[in-house]
């Protein structure tokens, strides 16, 4: 398959977002007059130096933090955050150690008030999707890092979000596992027809996952750059077009 999935759902627009943090009495601006449109069904990666505001942006989208000013519009309608339309996948799996894998996956739905029986039935389906059938009754401490992160992904998918927000999802995994998980994520994204926003500091990961890459600069007078990644899928990490795009991204950070 080389065609992109048809975007089923609407777009998310950020308009004139401002966010600053107070540090030792001073106000540190993180985002100033920030605009972005996330297209339905796309995979967007956000890269940038640390302190450039990538994680803050993701947390505002998730509703875990609020912008000082500015609007979030879903299909043109103002919204405080994405709410139940989104699910967050954190760098750490953040599983509840006292729940079995199946019950961890069901937790996201149950937290929203879905009946446990229904939640667990759906959880079982998504556990199979991430390749962890047979691990339903295992406890988190018995899982490897990659397996635990799969459980976290299944938990997010079980809530059937329109947008998956991923905050350096594979940053804590070893190199081999990371590559496998990236391929897995692209497969899931295509199968589930979900919009995906991934914050990462790994430029190769950004090129592999994304349709578009947003480059945030720590210099806030410089407008964020959006780079189109029009490579066919499945993507070859060693193809010349892939390497060229990665180099273009590195040049954004003054690296060669």
């Amino acid at each position: 398959m080389t065609t992109l999935p048809v975007p089923l759902r609407g777009e998310v627009a950020l308009r004139g977002l401002h966010k600053s943090f107070a540090l030792e009495g001073r106000s540190i601006p993180i985002l100033t007059n920030f605009d972005l449109t996330i297209r339905g069904g796309e995979s967007l990666a956000i890269v940038g130096a640390s302190g450039a505001g990538k994680t803050t942006l993701l947390r505002i989208l998730a509703g875990l933090e609020t912008a000082d000013t500015g609007d979030i519009l879903i299909d043109g309608e103002p919204a405080g955050g994405l709410g139940s339309a989104c699910a967050v996948i954190f760098q750490e799996p953040r599983l509840l150690p006292w729940l079995t894998v199946l019950r961890n996956v069901a937790f996201g739905l149950e937290a929203r008030g879905t009946a446990p029986a229904t939640a667990r039935e759906r959880a079982g389906r998504y556990l199979r999707l991430v390749g962890l059938a047979g691990f339903e009754e295992a406890y988190p401490r018995q899982l490897s890092g990659g397996m635990a992160q799969r459980v976290g992904i299944a938990r997010a998918l079980t809530t059937q979000p329109e947008i998956l927000l991923l905050d350096e999802p594979f940053g804590a995994l070893d190199a081999m596992t990371k590559l496998a998980m990236q391929e897995e994520l692209v497969r899931i994204w295509r199968e589930e027809n979900v919009t995906m926003v991934t914050v990462t500091h790994d430029l190769e990961e950004a090129v592999f996952l994304a349709d578009r890459v947003l480059v945030l600069s720590r210099n806030r007078t410089q407008a964020p750059r959006l780079i189109d990644v029009s490579l066919p899928r499945p993507r070859e990490r060693t193809s010349s077009a892939f390497v060229a795009l990665r180099q273009e991204l590195m040049a954004e950070f003054g690296l060669h």
Binding site: A62, G63, L64, G83, S84, A87, V88, F90, E92, R94, L96, F107, G108, A111, R112, T159
Partner: peptide, 11 residues
């Protein structure tokens, strides 16, 4: 972080 995770699911 676990509390935040639960909140992110609307708990």
């Amino acid at each position: 972080k676990l509390v935040e995770m639960a909140r992110s699911y609307g708990a």
